[in-house]
């Protein structure tokens, strides 16, 4: 495993920790999209179907368990925790997430590397992950007072896929026969969706002001 890949995984892990920290310490999920969190839980379930069938490494298995466990616990907190759920911006978080799920499933059935159940679910998870941030970005745009932890969470989540792209470029040049078009294009789309956010993130950082996306 190269350093770029490890940095990507760690950024992903830290993003989840930042979110859980916010939920756990200030007992608030204000500004966080439950739609996006539910999509991530679905992404991990469909992608990690191989968790018990293909052993890659202890690191790999542990990380999969962490991502599955944390994504479901975040959804649980937002839906059922008696204090946390009160801070959920239900009226603002109106993105219809099933409009993302169905097209991704159809696309995975049409464009995949191999027509098997596991492979299609894997491909579906890649397509869905690429667009799963959309409800969160819409909510961010609607929210007037976004707290810093929410902004850092979204930034880290975007940085993770950007680091993965660098990892793919590195692997392409260092490993023979390393070609994964579906993964690359979905990852690229996912990172491009963050383009606007990144732009305003750096602007707010440079000018030392609170990030707010223009309506």
């Amino acid at each position: 495993m190269n350093i770029l890949r490890l940095a990507g995984d760690m950024t992903h892990l830290i993003s989840v920790i930042v979110l859980l920290l916010k939920i756990h310490s200030i007992k608030s999920c204000a500004g966080i999209s439950l739609k996006t969190q539910e999509l991530y839980a679905l992404v991990f379930v469909s992608r990690y179907l191989n968790i018990f069938t293909d052993f890659i490494s202890l690191y790999n298995t542990i990380m999969k368990l962490i991502f599955l466990g944390t994504s479901f616990s975040i959804v649980w907190y937002m839906r059922y925790h008696k204090i946390v759920r009160r801070s959920y911006d239900k009226d603002q978080d109106t993105f219809r997430h099933y409009f993302l799920v169905l097209p991704c499933l159809i696309l995975a059935l049409l464009i995949n590397e191999r027509f098997t159940f596991k492979e299609i679910m894997w491909t579906f998870s890649l397509y869905l992950e690429a667009v799963a941030i959309l409800p969160q970005l819409v909510l961010l745009q609607r929210t007037k007072n976004t707290d810093n932890l929410t902004v850092q969470y979204i930034f880290l989540l975007g940085a993770y896929r950007a680091l993965y792209i660098l990892n793919w470029i590195y692997r392409y040049f260092t490993e023979p026969d390393y070609l994964h078009w579906i993964t690359w294009i979905s990852g690229l789309v996912q990172t491009i969706l963050y383009g606007d956010f990144f732009y305003y993130y750096f602007l707010s950082w440079k000018n030392n002001v609170k990030l707010q996306l223009p309506a």
């Binding site: 995984d9 191989n50 993965y164 994964h180």
Partner: peptide
């Protein structure tokens, strides 16, 4: 079968 080694990325 170059595509179908076990997926090693997360």
């Amino acid at each position: 079968e170059i595509f179908h080694e076990p997926k090693d990325e997360l």
